[in-house]
Design a protein around this nucleic acid. Structure first.
Lengths: 211, 211
DNA sequence: TAGATTGTTAATCGATTAACAATC
DNA sequence: TAGATTGTTAATCGATTAACAATC
């Protein structure tokens, strides 16, 4: 539905937040909400909410507002939560294990179907019911199973090579946890989680406010 | 030094990225860099680099460019990497353990001095050399040790209460890993790591590009 | 000196906010 | 109907980019 062309990253990054707030409203059994009321809850302007939503379609009704459930479903559809994304985790260290156990992902359509590592001490162990496989089996596994997303939690020095390898296999999404910007000569979407960047911004902001 | 007033979040969020690129240049033994050359490496405009840096001071030299080591040190200082931030981890589950073992943080001035959990099965265990303490000891610990930052990796339903408790203790920085926006009636800086938000944006971008 | 490159001002671009006619 | 609230256009604000004089 609607023109999803030319939607800016600023808007896209707000979508999960709308999704969360609408999910909360549903849990509170609130059936309708105006942009004004939602703006108060979210701490943004009502104008912005209406502009954002209208990038994807006219989901509201004059004089009434938005039906919470309908809007929630629309945003879920826009984000692809109604679809299933298959994921593999590469690197079964602490971070990989944390991701393997994160319950929320599956609820939002991201299903982990494989975990890989090079460490013989980890291979064969089960994490959240999924056995850790040898990295040597990666190519074979991906040829036998459709994989949308690779979650990359390997050591810094292995990141670039592993990313290349993953992209060569035709995996379309890469969720990168290394403090490194990846550039790939393939049609692979990269989303970074730069934890130390986030922590440094926190450090800066603490300094700023309190000194 | 220089006027650190009115620096926008857009600029601040780019600082860790400059920090990383300069660190890489140092490792490559590159001693000087022009904004033009750095812009090529980083994939942003030279103009933006010069504008960003001049929020904090004139670190370059006409006709020469920037001395990599000097600029690196300046940005380290701006970010507070030269200072030490003391941190505690609240929630010793998989994510808490991952954070406890992350080597990069200490290198950048963030030192974990305590880990807390409510689970008797975890209390007393050592993680990266630090013993997990009972949450009951939190208040006592914080009164005896200066704590800058609390890293919050507790279950969703405990997040709000724990955040309140942490803020009441006068801890100035809160690094929140729950998919929830916190609002506190205290002078506490909150930085969120919304992993599922990031993953959903990745899902959206995959859909957009490939469908 | 001549060439290179900064710091900084001005121009452009994009995102946010305000306003309001349309309409439920 | 009257009141409320949307969808959308116009105005504003802020961030990015371009340009160039200053100067190493």
């Amino acid at each position: 539905m609607a023109q999803k062309k030319n939607v800016s990253m600023a808007v896209i990054k707000r979508l999960p937040r709308y999704f969360r707030y609408l999910s909360d409203l549903l849990k509170m059994d609130i059936t309708r909400i105006s942009s004004k009321e939602l703006s108060k809850r979210m701490g943004i302007t009502a104008s912005q909410i209406r502009q954002d939503l209208n990038c994807f379609g006219g989901f509201g009704q004059q004089g009434y507002g938005y039906n919470v459930e309908a809007l929630f479903n629309e945003i879920a559809k826009i984000l692809g939560v109604d679809k299933q994304f298959t994921c593999i985790i590469i690197g079964a260290g602490n971070m990989g294990q944390a991701l393997a156990h994160y319950k929320n992902f599956e609820k939002r359509g991201f299903k982990t179907i494989g975990i890989f590592d090079v460490d013989p001490g980890l291979i064969g162990k089960k994490m959240n019911g999924i056995e850790v496989m040898d990295m040597k089996e990666l190519e074979d596994f991906v040829s036998r199973n459709h994989v949308d997303i690779a979650m990359l939690t390997v050591p810094y020095e292995d990141t670039r090579e592993t990313a290349e390898r993953v992209a060569r296999l035709g995996i379309r999404g890469l969720w990168n946890f290394s403090p490194m910007d990846l550039k790939l000569p393939y049609d692979t979407v990269i989303e970074n989680v730069h934890l130390s960047d986030s922590l440094m911004v926190l450090g800066y902001r603490i300094k700023e406010i309190f000194e």
